[in-house]
């Protein structure tokens, strides 16, 4: 199981969701798919057409910038962090 750390702005969209979640999967795509099973709607917030991680959402696996195809080891920490954008 990877440990996924979610940002405050995303947690606010799914009341009651903990900041840290265990999720299974060997790639980021599978991890997000498992998140979506636990928290329905999560995939649509993190992923867009392609599919791809949304333009202004960054996912880091063990501290490295990741794509949907990035491998996720069993005990890795996955950080979801919104991009520095807005106004």
């Amino acid at each position: 199981m990877a440990v996924v750390v979610l940002p405050r702005s995303l947690l606010a969209l799914f009341p009651g969701t903990p900041r840290r979640l265990d999720a299974s999967g060997s790639t980021v795509r599978e991890v997000i798919a498992d998140l979506d099973k636990q928290v329905p709607g999560m995939w649509d917030r993190l992923c867009e057409t392609g599919p791809a991680i949304r333009t202004h959402v960054n996912v880091f696996v063990a501290g490295e910038r990741a794509s949907l195809e990035t491998a996720v080891a069993g005990d890795t920490t996955v950080h979801v962090i919104p991009a520095v954008s807005g106004g």
């Binding site: 702005s9 995303l10 649509d44 949304r54």
Partner: peptide, 23 residues
């Protein structure tokens, strides 16, 4: 949202609580 994409929000209690969906 610039971060999280399009959605339609819904409240059934005049805005006290909300859900959203883009399914």
């Amino acid at each position: 949202s610039g971060w999280y994409g399009p959605a339609v929000w819904r409240s059934d209690d005049l805005g006290e609580t909300w859900t959203h969906s883009s399914a």
